[in-house]
């Protein structure tokens, strides 16, 4: 049972050694007089692990990334299998896997995941559609900014879940209030972050455009917009996490289905293994969304990624 940890540890250690041997060609500080004998202990000591704002060797980063998942998982496994905690409270990885299988064969897993994803897609999609033009307009025109920034600045500090009762009164118990919640919870942050990105478009780039014969409209659509595209994708990547938690909040309150609903039901029957299963699914899907937006960035904005 300790075997997996040992293996991981050895693998990690090996990779470390490899990195250290080829990552550390000794850097001798050259003095201005080009003296051949390097003086000892002069200047900063070279380091691989603690390099500031710099890449580390690929094998080392891979090893660290594997550890990042493997260590918490191993601790969970260890604690669960030592029977320190009643497995009603802390199910083992195996039990969670079984719960996952059960949810899958019962068809709940697919239904609930699909329902949650649909809500996030529609709610966040609408927020994205609305926030791009408004955010760009607010960043580009001080007039639009003065008009909208105060109200958005206030409303965005009202916690979205506090609107749930109102949304239920206005929109009932169906899909509408959940989509509205996700929309409200993300649209303002999207707008403000896109606005900020537009403010950082170099003025010289716009002036160049004018002296090349460009009109304001062309500068807006052909210079400002492509310039902030990477920031827009990044904004979405950050804020889609919020929509992912809001959908669960909405489903915890009132829903027919969805991963949040599944968690509430599991709690009723004290099925902590199912709760764990749902949490893992939520994490994995969120991470996948994050990765795919990173992929989109790499594919569409090569110039902005190194």
């Amino acid at each position: 049972m300790q075997a997996p940890i040992a293996v991981l540890w050895m693998m990690g250690a090996n990779t470390f050694q490899v990195c250290c041997t080829f990552g550390l060609t000794p850097v001798t500080p050259t003095s201005p007089s080009f003296s051949t004998a390097p003086t000892a202990s002069q200047g900063m000591k070279p380091s691989v692990f603690w390099r500031l704002a710099d890449d580390i060797p690929k094998p080392m980063s891979t090893a660290l990334m594997v550890l990042s998942i493997a260590v918490p998982f191993a601790i969970w496994w260890l604690v669960a299998s030592l029977d320190l905690v009643n497995d009603k409270f802390l199910p083992s990885p195996l039990q969670v896997a079984q719960a996952l299988g059960r949810l899958w064969t019962d068809g709940f897993l697919l239904d609930d995941t699909a329902a949650s994803i649909m809500r996030v897609t529609v709610g966040f999609g609408l927020a994205a559609l609305v926030s791009v033009p408004i955010g760009i307009a607010m960043g580009a025109f001080a007039s639009v900014r003065s008009l909208l920034e105060p109200i958005i600045g206030v409303v965005r500090y009202m916690p979205p879940p506090a609107f749930i009762p109102l949304l239920i009164i206005y929109l009932g118990l169906g899909e509408a209030p959940k989509i509205a919640l996700i929309f409200m919870g993300t649209v303002f942050f999207n707008i403000l972050m896109i606005m900020d990105a537009v403010k950082f478009v170099p003025k010289a780039l716009l002036e160049t455009t004018y002296t090349l014969g460009g009109q304001r409209r062309q500068a807006l659509f052909q210079v400002i917009t492509p310039y902030v595209l990477p920031n827009i994708i990044d904004t979405f990547r950050i804020n889609i996490a919020t929509s992912w938690s809001l959908v669960v909040v909405a489903e915890l309150v009132a829903a027919e289905n969805g991963l949040g609903k599944r968690i509430v039901l599991a709690q009723k029957f004290f099925n902590t293994d199912e709760i764990f299963a749902c949490l893992i699914i939520l994490g994995v899907i969120g991470f996948a969304l994050d990765l795919s937006l990173r992929g989109l960035m790499k594919a569409t904005c090569k110039w902005a990624v190194n």
């Binding site: 010289a204 002036e207 004018y210 002296t211 492509p226």
Partner: peptide, 18 residues
Amino acid sequence: GPGSDRGMIFQSYTLYPW
């Protein structure tokens, strides 16, 4: 106002990065 009859080269490099 600005126009394409007077092209400008700035000290900071103003190429469109994308």
